[in-house]
């Protein structure tokens, strides 16, 4: 039997890769995909918990996360399209209009 912490460590690894991608990539779409990666890492740990603690509520949470991820993807990608239409670039370090 695989111990629970293995799953959790896997989840931590994927999450950290997502964080790294989000912090370092210039392309906004890849950054966005990194966010999805992080969400999936969380999902892995939730499903693992659900299995090991014998409680379905973890999976219910996954269900909601997927819902929110879908909504977020729709909105986020729409924003990216709008952004690209105005700035003609997908590189976030080319944009600093919100500078104080």
């Amino acid at each position: 039997m695989v111990p629970l912490n293995w799953y959790l460590m896997l989840s931590a690894a994927v999450f950290s890769i997502g964080v790294f991608g989000f912090l370092t990539r210039r392309n906004i779409i890849i950054m966005f995909m990194s966010v999805e990666l992080m969400l999936n890492a969380v999902n892995i740990s939730l499903v693992a918990f659900s299995h090991y603690l014998q409680d379905l509520r973890g999976q219910v949470l996954v269900f909601f996360i997927v819902t929110v991820a879908a909504a977020e993807a729709a909105i986020g990608l729409a924003i990216i399209i709008a952004l690209f239409r105005n700035k003609a670039t997908a590189h976030v370090d080319d944009m600093n209009e919100m500078k104080g």
């Binding site: 912490n5 964080v19 014998q54």
Partner: peptide, 30 residues
């Protein structure tokens, strides 16, 4: 990008340290 690497590594290390000795101690009905 090395800054990002450091942060990601720190988060990984932190999370790992939290879960490495984790033992489930709860048992639901499902």
């Amino acid at each position: 990008w090395p800054v990002g690497l450091v942060f990601a590594g720190a988060i990984f290390a932190g999370t790992l340290s939290a879960v490495v000795a984790f033992v489930p101690n709860f048992s639901g009905q499902y």
